[in-house]
Simulated assay, not measured.
Amino acid sequence: MNEVAYEVDVRSLDDLSPRDLYAMLKMRIDVFVVEQKCAFPEMDGKDPEALHLRLLAGTELLASTRIIAPSGTDDPAYIGRAVVSPNHRGKRLGDKLMAESIAACERLFPGRPIALSAQSHLQKFYASFGFETVSEEYLEDDIPHIDMLRKNASP
């Protein structure tokens, strides 16, 4: 397995260049809409208020997540739109992406739990990062999902 060197970049939508935004949205659409054959509203209105964590090799986008700040004092931070470039799968970038996303949430929102909506077949993957299933399985865009939560210790 080839180890991939990467840099972590976390920024708001307004701080992404047009080319960076295009690359991120193209990768998400290529994977979620085209590869997974799932017609859904990828442009759901949440990106402008979110932070976007990207793993980069120079200017090449390897993987990304969307981080949404807690909306209330008891609400969790939310990690979503986790995606690894099809050109870089099999290099454990999913593990690195999740570890970096959790670290960013812990740094930005100390002591807050972290939530995500996981495709059901990835339950064990997310559980390996401390996420616990908190819902029954449900269909989201015709794909089985579960809600998961990772409790964080107080700062």
Rank of each mutant, 00 (worst) to 15 (best):
D74C: 14
V4H: 07
Y6E: 11
F32S: 10
R54E: 06
E137N: 05
F125I: 06
D44L: 05
L93H: 01
F40A: 03
M43R: 10
V31K: 04
A104M: 08
F131C: 14
I143P: 02
S120N: 02
R11Y: 02
P41R: 11
A69R: 04
F125R: 01
L62Q: 03
E132P: 06
P110T: 04
Y138R: 00
R81Q: 06
E35R: 00
M24W: 11
D20R: 15
M148T: 07
H88K: 02
L97P: 02
A153D: 10
A103Q: 06
R150K: 14
H88A: 03
S85H: 10
I102L: 08
A118F: 04
F131Q: 07
P155S: 09
H52R: 11
S64Y: 07
L116S: 01
P48A: 03
E132L: 10
Q119F: 06
G80F: 02
E35G: 04
T65S: 11
R107L: 05
C105V: 07
R92S: 15
R11E: 07
G45M: 10
K37Q: 05
D30N: 15
A57W: 12
R28S: 11
R66V: 10
L21R: 12
V8L: 12
A104S: 09
V31A: 11
R81K: 09
S17E: 09
L53S: 02
L61G: 13
G45I: 08
R11N: 13
R19M: 07
E100Y: 03
L51S: 05
A127V: 12
T59G: 15
L21I: 03
S64D: 02
P86H: 13
A99L: 12
Y78R: 04
Y6G: 04
R81S: 02
A82G: 07
Y78M: 11
K124D: 14
I146Y: 01
C38P: 02
P110F: 05
S85M: 08
I114T: 11
M148S: 08
P113S: 14
Y126M: 13
S117A: 12
R19Y: 09
I29K: 14
G80L: 01
A104P: 03
L51Q: 09
D30G: 12
E7G: 15
R112C: 08
R19E: 07
V134E: 04
T65W: 01
R92K: 15
T73S: 10
A23H: 15
D75L: 14
I68V: 13
I67T: 01
G45F: 10
D75C: 10
H88C: 07
N87E: 12
K96Q: 13
L51K: 04
P18W: 04
I67L: 15
T59L: 13
L16K: 11
E140D: 06
